[in-house]
Design a protein around this nucleic acid. Structure first.
Lengths: 154, 154
DNA sequence: GTTTAAGAGGACTATTTTAGTCCTATTTTG
DNA sequence: CAAAATAGGACTAAAATAGTCCTCTTAAAC
């Protein structure tokens, strides 16, 4: 289903929350309680986001996390990369020469193009977009489509 | 890593192969041998593609599979949906009311937008594009990006 | 200067998903 | 009817993910 992990889902939720009150420090415990999530899990997500420098952290008593920068500067692609590693749909797009059928594959360069398409799409949605009402979203209509509708499948 | 499964990878490989000789019937065994993949696995993939009507099938001795239609009419989004189910990054985009934090989530409508962005990107790549040389690919540059580069992560 | 409230970092376990295999039934040709 | 295919499940093994826990460091408050 081309899914992202739950941790990423939590991450987006937490970031969205933090974006609503920029600059304010939030502790992991506080956020976990507010959103009814496990404390350890929230801590893990925040640590990952912090490591990727999407969050600024203040250690010690009274410390916590806050956004590293303006919500409009934090892209979906950054968030996903922080929590799931490099955005790449297949193994072979990440590292070469590791694929048993590679020599006879011939598809690899094409996967890179597909990756780019997805990556670009995710680059174009920022945290700021997620805080705005949904109707204000960018609509992605650069190329006329044969069909756009939900969940295709002829 | 926002990955697709191996089966989808195989599917793209097989479809690409078939697109090169349109109309010709191929048996699962034949394709498995050619690409050095397990016979049962290839059979599974072909059955799924057939069920999604991306392949036409001829049963009985001498039978096999061939593309349902022109390669340019088969979109990446169709292939992924056939092999992984509906394209949706999170559970809650697929079915409502099933999410423990839903009432307090507020992010759901936004995920739908993100899904749309990805879906659109995958709608715009067809099997025909994968058969052409990579340089001829559509380049997806509709919006100026702050950064495009590979695998972000600041 | 000790206690307490935080984050950093890593290791581990359990759960869930995915991949792969196999079996039985059906279809069609020769 | 025998052989070569696909259809459709059920099952098993392997891999990835989520979630938990422990120890260490940092800094404020008392």
């Amino acid at each position: 289903m081309l899914r992202i992990g739950k941790l990423t889902d939590y991450g987006v939720l937490l970031l969205t929350d933090m974006a609503a009150a920029p600059g304010e420090l939030r502790s992991a415990t506080e956020l976990a309680e507010k959103h009814h999530l496990g404390g350890a899990t929230v801590a893990k997500v925040l640590k990952l986001l912090s490591k990727a420098q999407l969050l600024e952290t203040v250690r010690g008593s009274g410390g916590g996390y806050r956004l590293c920068c303006e919500a409009s500067a934090i892209r979906m692609s950054d968030i996903i990369a922080a929590l799931e590693g490099p955005i790449a749909l297949t193994e072979c797009s990440v590292h070469d020469g590791n694929c048993s059928i590679e020599s006879d594959c011939g598809v690899r360069t094409h996967w890179q193009v597909i990756n780019n398409a997805v990556h670009t799409a995710l680059n174009n949605v920022t945290l700021a977009d997620l805080v705005k009402p949904a109707s204000a979203m960018p609509q992605e209509q650069h190329i006329p489509l044969t069909a756009v509708g939900g969940l295709s499948r002829a």
